[in-house]
């Protein structure tokens, strides 16, 4: 076996379609927080013309405009790799447009429902107003993450089916519907916190790492923790 066989494989899905505003941050912070703990990582960029590998550990999907979102969903469905990877227990972290398309269905620009990848039991459509601004939410205690903060910029509204659990309850901001924010199902997790959601919430990044490698030692608090505190204080 090659010496990358034991590395944590972080797979960035379609940076050519789904990388709109800081989504790369999630890749960079996962790598850093893994490597600070001595976990070797391998970053795989999967372009929309490439097949999605099924043997990754953590799959990341970013945000996108309407048309790239539709293209990404069509290609992921045709490819099938992401769904197979989720079925074999990989972790998936998707933000904004990426969150919508891993669900059962999502709305196009005229709010016609289109089929999603179907690895998270959510259905999304278009709301009356655009939700733009800082958002704060309290994560489901079962996940051990605490309070999260981020920036949302979307017109989507998302309803959860019976197999999905709300990621969090909103304190300020809109999220899924003004009450809850994001959803998870097994190790598939999605959120409207767009762009660098993991840099802004180090505990959420560590949750994904724990899902794949088990217990991890805590890190000395640094700028990520400070930013998290600062943004919470600014938003509340």
């Amino acid at each position: 076996m090659s010496d990358t066989s034991s590395a944590l494989r972080i797979v960035w899905i379609y940076p050519d379609l789904l990388s709109t505003y800081g989504d790369q941050g999630n890749v960079l912070i996962l790598r850093r927080r893994a490597e600070l703990r001595g976990i070797r990582t391998e970053i795989v960029h999967v372009h929309s013309s490439d097949a999605v590998p099924v043997e990754g550990d953590i799959y990341l999907l970013g945000g996108g405009e309407d048309r790239p979102q539709i293209l990404a969903a069509e290609r992921l469905r045709a490819d099938g790799g992401l769904k197979r990877a989720a079925e074999r227990g990989a972790a998936v972290f998707a933000v904004c447009a990426g969150y919508q398309i891993i669900g059962e269905s999502y709305g196009d620009d005229a709010d016609n429902p289109l089929p999603g990848v179907g690895i998270l039991d959510i259905r999304s459509g278009r709301g009356e107003t655009r939700a733009v601004g800082e958002i704060v939410a309290d994560v489901d205690p079962a996940l051990g993450v605490g309070r999260i903060t981020g920036f949302e910029n979307h017109q989507g509204r998302t309803a959860l089916g019976p197999s999905a659990t709300a990621l969090s309850r909103t304190v300020t901001g809109t999220g899924n519907d003004g009450q809850t924010e994001g959803a998870f199902q097994g190790q598939v997790l999605g959120t409207y916190l767009h762009g660098p959601a993991l840099p802004r919430n180090p505990e959420l990044a560590d949750l994904l790492l724990r899902w794949r490698v088990g217990q991890i030692p805590p890190l000395e608090p640094s700028w990520g923790e400070r930013l998290h505190e600062e943004r919470l204080a600014a938003a509340l």
């Binding site: 505003y21 800081g22 941050g25």
Partner: peptide
């Protein structure tokens, strides 16, 4: 812009 996400690009 109130959103600094772009710093990560």
């Amino acid at each position: 812009g109130k959103d600094t996400s772009w710093l990560w690009d």
